[in-house]
Simulated assay, not measured.
Amino acid sequence: MKTGITTHVLDLTQGKPGAGIKVELWEITNSTRTFIANGLTNEDGRVETVLLEKVEDGEYELVFLVKEYFQRAEGKNNFLTSIPIRFYTDKTQVHYHIPLLLSGWGYQTYRGS
């Protein structure tokens, strides 16, 4: 069984995984952000390392730094630069997978499995 916080990115415009995207995980406490970990999506669009090993009760923010990805992929798209996703965790749930479905002009996310 998987544990912790994990993520991956799919590029809907190109119909392939979003490779080479830097992802940061922050913990939010009383409106203060504390850096936890970062990773880079691989050729399958997945951050291979678990960003947080043990889930506790709390609020977190995943930030997908997509500006360079779009400049490489499309050459000129500067609309989205970073995508923050804030979510709450409950320590009774051992795994949170937060995927990002991405296009040049928008995005969608959900709690994955």
Rank of each mutant, 00 (worst) to 15 (best):
Gly104Lys: 03
Asp44Asn: 13
Arg86Val: 12
Gly112Thr: 08
Gln93Ala: 13
Thr92Leu: 15
Val47Lys: 08
Ala19Val: 11
Lys22Trp: 01
Arg86Leu: 15
Glu68Asp: 10
Pro17Ile: 07
Glu43Arg: 10
Glu48Lys: 15
Gly75Glu: 03
Leu80Pro: 03
Arg46Trp: 08
Ile21Glu: 00
Arg111Gly: 10
Trp26Asp: 08
Arg46Asn: 12
Val9Lys: 01
Arg86Cys: 05
Phe35Asn: 03
Val55Lys: 04
Gly58Asp: 09
Ser113Gly: 13
Gly4Trp: 00
Ala37Met: 14
Ile85Asn: 01
Asp44His: 09
Asn78Leu: 07
Glu43Asn: 11
Leu52Ser: 05
Val94Lys: 07
Asn42Ala: 11
Glu24Asn: 13
Ile21Leu: 04
Leu101Tyr: 03
Glu56Trp: 10
Asp57Met: 13
Ser113Gln: 11
Leu62His: 03
Gly18Arg: 01
Ala37Glu: 10
Lys67Pro: 02
Gly20Val: 05
Pro17Met: 07
Ile28Arg: 03
Glu27Pro: 05
Gln108Asp: 11
Glu68Lys: 13
Val47Leu: 11
Thr109Ile: 07
Pro84Leu: 12
Gln108Pro: 04
Glu61Ser: 12
Glu43Thr: 10
Val94Cys: 13
Gly39His: 08
Thr6Asn: 06
Ala37Tyr: 07
Asn30Gln: 15
Ile21Val: 05
Glu24Ile: 14
Thr81Pro: 02
Leu40Cys: 10
Arg111Thr: 09
Arg33Tyr: 14
Ile5His: 02
Leu40Ser: 09
Val9Gly: 04
Thr13Lys: 13
Thr32Met: 14
Leu40Gln: 12
Gly58Pro: 05
Val66Thr: 05
Ile83Gly: 01
Ser82Tyr: 12
Thr6Phe: 00
Ile85Arg: 10
Pro84Lys: 13
Lys91Ala: 14
Val9Asp: 00
Thr32Phe: 15
Ser103Tyr: 00
Leu80Tyr: 02
Leu51Asn: 06
Leu102Gly: 00
Asn42Leu: 07
Pro99Cys: 12
Gln14Gly: 10
Thr6Pro: 01
Asn78Val: 02
Ser82Arg: 15
Asp11Cys: 06
Gln93Arg: 13
Thr6Asp: 04
Gly15Leu: 06
Arg72Gly: 11
Leu12Trp: 05
Asn38Arg: 08
Arg86Asp: 00
Ile85Thr: 02
Gly45Thr: 11
Leu40Asp: 09
Tyr69Lys: 01
Phe64Ser: 07
Leu80Trp: 03
Ile28Ala: 11
Gly45Ala: 06
Leu12Pro: 01
Glu74Phe: 15
Met1Asp: 03
Thr3Gln: 15
Leu51Thr: 02
Leu52Gln: 05
Thr7Phe: 04
Leu25Trp: 07
Glu48Asp: 13
Glu43Cys: 12
Asp44Met: 14
Leu12Asn: 04
Gln108Asn: 13
Leu10Cys: 14
Leu40Lys: 12
Ile83Ala: 01
Glu56Leu: 14
Ile28Trp: 01
Phe64Asn: 01
Lys54Tyr: 13
Gly58Tyr: 01
Val50His: 14
Arg72Pro: 07
Met1Ser: 13
